[in-house]
Design a protein around this nucleic acid. Structure first.
Lengths: 342, 342
DNA sequence: GTATAACGCATAATCGATTAAGTGTTAAGG
DNA sequence: CCTTAACACTTAATCGATTATGCGTTATAC
């Protein structure tokens, strides 16, 4: 293992103290009135030796790591990975690194990950929290760490939040169905108390009520989300063959639903009109292309990282406000109006 | 900011030295013959105070961070994010954390990321390297860091590599086309010297040659991969309207290709039979469902993490071997035999 | 009865930085 | 001629761990 160069090596070579080297390397030469000549010689020698500061020693001393911990639900979900990518990029430009992990929306697992992040002394947190994390987030904030939540938040908890207009997304989707002449409109969502899901449900309910239509909702238990969502959806569609349209609350529910429709030899939109939340880039190539409620990935990422880094750099306090970004209904084939009488 | 508990706090409370506390907390009480009673009292008090070791101080002293740096081409590509997720999971079980970043296959960017990782003193590296990284990887290894490459590697460089049988993947795909009666078979790939791309090309060429068919290859310049691959592909398909089948060398090329086909009102497989490399979960729902050469994501991840952690834990040296994992052709609608005479 | 070993812990150096306070030299001021 | 200030750095404490070595007390051995 090659020995790393430390400021002591440079100090020795230049016959000065390590403090002088430290000041010079931190650009405090003028402030500490180190002579121009010495400054330049130290800089030159540091470059020559290929000196790289030991971040660990630096962090131990300063208490800052320039690392941001990010917890997403699932890094292999295109919605989250797109956000992670943009956040990572912006953070890098501002001199910060992002460490991300998938929570699987599991409370216990997430508490463990939070411990890991605290142990790693990350400077700040970006979190799409699973349920039941109020206490931990509260403590995190009380201990002075800046936290920005995104995609969802907790009603009782004062935090900085960046979310999209989930209510309006669902509302627009249902209005679109109604304008296309659908009346029997279902909503397939997760059985979750989380605010983003509740808002989507409210948007659906509201739009249905305003249109004088009756709600029909399937709540898939969270635990079986990946294992057997398809089974539940299949039963639901079979039991409610009168349905003309369905809004899916997440992209993976929609994908499971489309698989079920394939199985049942149902075509969208002829047999069932379909809209999904989260516009993932693959939807345009699905059979049929899928209408989706697009969340503004770039805007979410920008808002999140901006707020966090502003706070970190100013050592000020984070403004505990909720930023709501608009959604956009991307209309594709899966929700085309069906002309023929059913 | 709440003050963190250190071993000194515990030592003071118990009226012992910090060394004693350190031994106890590291399970070396017996070895250092600390009395059972004291050991238990220290442990109890540590728990009571909610003591958490300062990983930064620990790392500074030991030189180990229990962190693995992982460089993938693009974290929002399902192929890479699936691998990242499995690797992350296994690493966590073994007490390691993964920090990942996207290289965009950009040499300069990647060199920078390597610097960041070195600065962060990660214990080991998992890398899907962009071109031109030989020198840096060489140095990394010479400096004593374990490195495992995956998805691609460098012929002149002795490293531990985990790759799939790219040659066979392309070969199987072409054989499948031929068995379905296709003769005019094109290959759309990247203009890249990287080994995984070269192998896919060789597999294609070999299969074509053995079938007595003539090769027809489009090499999309790497730089325009995302910006304008579609344009190149469109021109290629228009100029070669006699093509009956096309193999795409990556999932995003296939996606671009399918978009172009939509544009040109070409249907797969009737107008053009299609196979893609990388089986991403969305392919089954595309229009039509896409036949793909599936790489064994789980097996790749396991092999990568196993080799690296074995090396880290045994402080032995990494075996510089290349592990080649088999691929699997998943046949779907986009490559169905076309019965009608063309 | 004394040398030796075993026991049970303490001392202090160390990792590589940061930074407040100090120190020796020279020049200017009165 | 002596004080003060400016200059240009140095000293040393500190962050929170790890770990080789040391050291006083009691028990055992011969």
């Amino acid at each position: 293992m090659k020995k790393k160069i430390s400021i002591y090596d440079i100090a020795r070579d230049m016959s000065v103290s390590s403090a002088t080297v430290s000041y010079v390397l931190n650009g405090k030469a003028a402030e500490k009135r180190i002579s121009k000549g010495l400054e330049e010689r130290i800089l030159a020698h540091a470059r020559e030796l290929g000196y790289r500061p030991n971040m660990i020693a630096k962090s131990l001393r300063t208490g800052k790591t320039k690392i941001i911990g990010m917890l997403v639900e699932d890094i292999s979900d295109p919605f989250f990975s797109s956000i992670a990518k943009v956040v990572e990029e912006r953070a890098a430009q501002l001199g910060y690194r992002i460490f991300y992990c998938s929570t699987e929306n599991d409370t216990t697992l997430t508490k463990g990950l939070l411990r890991v992040f605290r142990d790693a002394q990350v400077d700040g947190y970006i979190i799409a929290p699973p349920p039941g994390l109020e206490q931990d987030l509260q403590e995190l904030q009380e201990d002075g760490y800046p936290v920005v939540l995104f995609d969802r938040f907790f009603d009782g908890l004062e935090t900085a939040n960046v979310v999209t207009d989930n209510f309006d997304g669902a509302y627009q989707a249902i209005r679109h169905f109604v304008e296309n002449g659908c009346q029997q409109i279902g909503f397939i969502t997760l059985d979750s108390e989380q605010v983003q899901m509740q808002d989507r449900l409210s948007g659906y309910d509201k739009a249905m009520e305003q249109s004088g239509l009756e709600s029909l909702v399937l709540k898939v238990p969270y635990e079986i989300k990946h294992r057997n969502a398809a089974g539940k959806i299949k039963t639901f569609l079979e039991d409610n063959s009168h349905l003309e349209a369905v809004l899916f609350a997440t992209n993976y529910l929609a994908i499971a639903g489309l698989e079920v429709m394939n199985d049942l030899h149902m075509q969208a939109p002829a047999d069932l009109s379909v809209i999904s939340f989260d516009d993932i880039k693959y939807f345009s190539l699905f059979s049929p292309s899928v209408t989706a409620v697009a969340q503004p990935v770039e805007a979410i990422s920008e808002a999140v990282i901006q707020q966090l880094i502003d706070c970190l750099e100013s050592s000020g306090t984070l403004e505990k406000k909720t930023t709501v970004l608009p959604v956009n209904l991307v209309v594709r084939a899966s929700s085309s109006p069906v002309l023929a009488v059913r």
